[in-house]
Design a protein around this nucleic acid. Structure first.
Lengths: 300, 300
DNA sequence: AGTGCCATGAAAAAGCCTTTCAATGGGGGC
DNA sequence: GCCCCCATTGAAAGGCTTTTTCATGGCACT
């Protein structure tokens, strides 16, 4: 586990904690819950007090912050303080938007809560996105002979979106709906190919199978997931992490899907830029082909 | 000397330090100078390091913070961290994000530009969205016997997303890819049905045909478009406008797609809330069905 | 039942913060 | 000039916090 200085981390303490939640043991999880529920207070507690309040030992608190990526308790404390100071500084955001959507909400409330949630998912994801990993993903996809993409549910749509985009700049890619077809295509991969697996949880069996099959076949593997520590994340050569804020009322996983799309957009623009001339030419062709189906010309 | 909780103090650490400057002995003064010149760094130093860097002893540092009004070194550290976080939070958004993406951009630039563009598309759309129209759309879809959805390209994916969501709460809906199939289904609509057309430009012929066909058949028609004045917008009974910021380099129409999805999310949550009990039950069933395909349980 | 692994906390070790106390040195009174 | 006093300072001891080590108990798999 890396030991980053708190400078880069400070804005993402809470996000990081959220992202490692699944990898935490129950006693560590208790610590995480308390920290997430009141980061400001947690910052002002000693490691002993924190442990006691969570009904666990200082050892578990240590294990907790190590997993989150900190080398010492002081560093975590400082970042918690910084983060909460920042949040409270942004007091122009109405408090209610943090809450979950409920039956009493008016449509106005719903709109602002959704807008807030999705906005934060994008902002947070941009924050935590590892540019190094993105760069590797960009060059892998750019040089790929064939790119297989697989995700189920909402992830499947994101996959289709990616496939559409890559197709428009002349790259060969496939977005599979059927897990068996996906794995079959993955099995035919080789060192020149890329496999992209999309899963919020990182725990979907079909998606993991797909990625592992592609890996055995020698392909470069990319995972887009909220949980870098998940089975999917661990299996992938390159991990692009989202940082979606999921609310309890989360049908369709709105935040995660938006975050995934945002990552796909970044990846795509990176790839398009990587091979700029060819991409522009291809885009112009596809654009022209679509214009024939239009009544009038929209936009500047 | 009083021992104030850091809550009241936190916003004024630096001011307080300045105000006690005259009362400080030379060695304490050295500490104060260093803290004032770089509070953020001071916050991350241990009392020993701080003393050493000032060419003095830890004792003097203790005397310093006592005079400033702190009961312990940890409290000072936290307030310094909070204070500097607040200051840096203000000037955070780099100006370049407004610009278009170009070949000279680094991946970091691309990520922030995309994040900014998508964030603004959501915020603007939330602003522009006519809640009155949304309310009409919600009740139309809630009471619909069958909902036909059609969009091409990126709009098609948004349509699929909507179909998936409605399906999960037990509503009958269809997302068509093929324009002829879409129009065929639209022709079979009646007054109890709804047709949703998704098009950024509002000028796509196939989409307009689809909506008009549904209208003739008596269905309630909803358009999701960036241009309420477009042929599609004028043809529709209910218009939900997006406010996407399209950049010139706009392959895949990233902003418009995000904005469309955001509208679909609002519409969906509105519909789900409208028939809350039934929706929750349906969602729980679909959620349970999906859990079987997971290795481990992510998140709360 | 036996075996091995994992999660956990107790306790030792290390480190950091706080307090005590003695040394230093400068100034004023004798 | 000499001595005393006191302000200032840091060394070191003491105490508390953090970190590491290691033993225990439970659980799953044989």
């Amino acid at each position: 586990m890396e030991m980053p200085g708190s400078a880069q981390l400070s804005r993402t303490v809470l996000l990081r904690i959220r992202s490692v939640l699944p990898a935490l043991r129950p006693s560590e999880r208790a610590v995480a819950d308390l920290v997430l529920s009141d980061p400001s207070r947690a910052a002002s507690m000693s490691i002993g007090d924190l442990a006691e309040e969570c009904g666990t030992s200082t050892t578990s608190v240590v294990r907790f912050y190590k997993k989150v990526g900190y080398g010492g308790y002081a560093a975590l404390r400082l970042d918690l303080a910084r983060e909460t100071a920042r949040e409270s500084a942004a007091h122009d955001v109405p408090a209610e938007v943090y809450e979950d959507i409920n039956t009493a909400d008016s449509l106005e409330d719903i709109v602002s809560k959704i807008a807030f949630n999705e906005t934060m998912s994008i902002a947070d994801t941009a924050q935590v996105l590892d540019v190094e990993q993105l760069a590797r993903a960009v060059s892998a996809v750019s040089g790929s002979r064939k790119t297989d993409i697989f995700g189920v549910g909402a992830g499947g749509l994101v996959g289709q979106d990616m496939q559409q985009k890559l197709h428009r700049i002349g790259l060969t890619s496939f977005s599979w709906c059927d897990p068996h077809a996906a794995s079959a295509s993955a099995a035919l991969q080789d060192a020149d190919g890329v496999a992209v697996a999309i899963s919020h949880s990182g725990a979907t069996l079909d998606t993991i199978d797909f990625l592992k099959t592609a890996k055995s076949a020698g392909a470069t593997t990319i995972a887009i997931t909220n949980h870098a520590d998940s089975p999917l994340g661990r299996a992938a050569g390159i991990v692009l992490s989202t940082a979606a804020r999921e609310t309890p009322f989360r049908p369709g996983a709105m935040g995660s899907r938006i975050a995934q799309m945002m990552i796909v957009d970044c990846l795509f623009v990176g790839v398009a830029q990587h091979s700029h001339d060819a991409s522009i030419a291809a885009l112009q062709k596809t654009h022209a082909a679509v214009q024939d189906r239009k009544l009038w010309r929209a936009n500047p």
